[in-house]
Design a protein around this nucleic acid. Structure first.
Length: 566
RNA sequence: GUGCCUGUAGCUCAGUUGGAUAGAGCGUCAGUUUGCGGAACUGAAGGUCGUACGUUCGAAUCGUAUCAGGCACACCA
């Protein structure tokens, strides 16, 4: 595609002496394989009618014989058609490259740190963390595919109030026996129950529980043995749970540098900023960074009045660490939309204190749920959070029930279940709120993970059954494969676009279209039946192997596995 | 109140960065199987792109206003 665009730019330059970056689009098939609007763009500069310009470009293109057909339509579109055999050559040429097909080197020599899924250790993994995990994982794969050196870090929420609340609540509401039996689910319940109790108490004008929780925090910071023991036990339970769930999702990070890890360095940095005059200490001891010069009226609070760290403190420490130790050129925070303002502040502060890194908040929409009466609302703990493990169990149950034959392995059932859930996450733009609906979450047909997986499994089987298929017929015209070839040729541009904009849903949408094109092709064109001559069979199988490659590449980016059977 | 996000088919959403007759899935209706894997394929119905101005050859896309919904706004994380 780039090749053809360059040729058109060249023709324009020869004819008019204008430097124009011709872009090709894919019009409706009836118009052609590719189309360009250069004639319309030139019309303004040259003060001439677009159709006249198009005619001249067409004449030149016909003369050069680059395209099998050049036509002009509408206000001045130039539609181009390429021989299917030529498309096949183009594709083979693209595969015959040092870089894997689909990859590019845009990020060569640069380092990116991705921050996801930022698990809160106080509660069990809920569907609320699902998007950060999925989107973050896909983003890291997109960065890798475009040449970046990638560092992933699960920025654990392991510091601050939750610990104090845990201990107070454990003593008041729970027991060793319950904790041993229910693990993180008991801790999560304790956390919610205790927070509510503190709120009730506050409404009654008392602060007993809150004070007690605060005491435990201070004890922990002071290294009190009992506090340390509780902390280590609770954290282990929580961490084991996080690892188990992420393993089920097939999502991993290189580091787990939690808030606790950065608390001290963050506090030090806060004080240093005061010394440098970049931050201001209030009379009550709290430290703020004014951000008026960034049009942000609310200053950033980076230290509490009691001298303790808060979210911004640890994030400050984290920024410095990623700058100094990871030498990050770019940091991507995969965090929900709710925190947009917070990250505006954080990024402004980073700029103010002189950190030269590209900071991106890869935000995503919230998860809504459909109520029984059909109304839609934000998913909340008040209404009962859906736990991720329960969701995965349910997905596997439904996948198993939908499997046609009994001899499908558990691993394949899991791949189908996870594929359905993940694809739903990538079905929309990440910024669009995601609708959590038990009915559509496990879609097994239409615009869904299993639809794509099914197409991949089908051709993998064909390829597997026809490994020694002989030599390709050099005369074959690839006319039946035209649409599939065109779709395959689109892939590198899709990857680039998805990576540039951090929009994994473009990959999902593409891979679905490829599957659809594939199924259509497969429905009408026999590939490996007995009546297909060997040379043609070999040619068609070679195209299918390219399709299989792209399925794998694209689904890998999304973190979706292809079952061996389904 | 201020800022940000969203508004497209009955429902859930895309829309190649300003292009041609606005597209998918689900749902509804009608079809396709002596055939390489039918979790598939084909077709039909369904639209004032929230509304109104503006920018230009051309607007779902850009600007202004307005209506509706959501989120955020320093000692929570």
């Amino acid at each position: 595609m780039d090749k053809y665009a360059d040729q058109i730019s060249q023709v324009v330059n020869d004819l008019y002496g204008q430097t124009i970056d011709a872009e090709l689009t894919r019009p409706e098939p009836k118009f052609g394989d590719y189309a360009t609007n250069v004639a319309m763009r030139l019309a303004g500069q040259l003060h001439r009618r677009p159709r006249d310009i198009a005619e001249e470009i067409k004449a030149k293109l016909d003369e050069l014989g680059l395209f099998s057909d050049v036509s002009i339509a509408g206000p001045g579109f130039i539609n181009l058609r390429v021989e299917a055999g030529q498309l096949h050559n183009d594709l083979e040429h693209a595969f015959d490259n040092e870089l894997p097909f689909g990859n590019n080197n845009d990020g060569a020599g640069k380092i990116v740190v991705l921050d996801f899924p930022s698990t809160n250790m106080a509660k069990p993994f809920s569907v609320g963390h699902l998007r950060s995990a999925n989107q973050g994982w896909a983003a890291s794969n997109l960065m890798r595919a475009t040449g970046w050196k990638v560092i992933t870090d699960n920025h654990l929420g392991d510091y601050g109030a939750p610990f104090g609340i845990w201990v107070v609540g454990f003593k008041k509401f729970s027991s060793e026996a319950e904790l041993a039996k229910r693990g993180i689910y008991e801790l999560g319940d304790i956390y919610i129950k205790t927070k509510k109790a503190i709120k009730d108490e506050e409404a009654a004008g008392k602060t007993e529980l809150a004070d007690e929780a605060q005491q435990w925090l201070l004890k922990l910071e002071a290294g009190d043995p009992e506090a340390v023991e509780y902390s280590e036990r609770f954290n282990k339970i929580s961490l084991d749970h996080i690892h188990k769930v992420m393993d089920r999702l097939g999502i991993y990070t290189d580091y787990e540098l939690g808030e606790k890890f950065f608390a001290e360095s963050g506090k030090e940095a806060a004080h240093q900023l005061v010394d440098k005059g970049l931050a201001k200490q209030n009379d009550d001891g709290s430290i703020i960074v004014p951000l008026d010069e960034y049009d942000i009226k609310t200053p950033m609070l980076i230290l509490k009045s009691n001298g303790a760290a808060l979210y911004a403190t640890t994030d400050l420490g984290t920024l410095l660490y990623r700058h100094d130790h990871f030498h990050a050129d770019r940091i991507i925070y995969v965090v929900a939309a709710e925190q947009k303002f917070y990250f505006q502040q954080l990024f402004a502060m980073a700029d103010k204190i002189g950190l030269k890194m590209e900071l991106i908040h890869m935000w995503f929409g919230l998860i809504d749920q459909i109520n029984e009466d059909g109304t839609r609302e934000k998913m909340s703990s008040r209404k009962g959070v859906v736990l991720l493990e329960a969701l995965l169990d349910e997905a596997e149950k439904r996948a198993r029930a939908n499997v046609k034959t009994d001899d499908i392995s558990d691993d394949d059932v899991k791949r189908i279940a996870i594929g359905a859930i993940k694809f739903t996450d990538f079905a929309n733009d990440r910024r669009t709120g995601m609708l959590f609906d038990w009915k559509t979450m496990f879609n097994l047909t239409g615009y869904s993970g299993p639809y794509v997986q099914y197409a991949a499994v089908r051709i993998n089987k064909i390829l597997h059954d026809n490994q020694d298929c002989g030599d390709v017929d050099k005369q074959y015209d690839y006319e039946s494969e035209r649409n599939v070839l065109l779709k395959l040729l689109d892939y590198p541009a899709i990857v680039k676009q998805a990576a540039d904009n951090l929009e994994p849903h473009r990959i999902a949408s593409y891979v679905y279209e490829l599957a659809k094109e594939m199924n259509r092709y497969y429905e009408t064109t026999p590939v490996a039946t007995n009546d297909v001559p060997t040379g043609i069979r070999a040619a068609r199988l070679s195209v299918l192997s390219r399709v299989a490659y792209v399925f794998k590449h694209a689904l890998d980016i999304l973190g979706i596995q292809i079952p061996s059977r389904m």
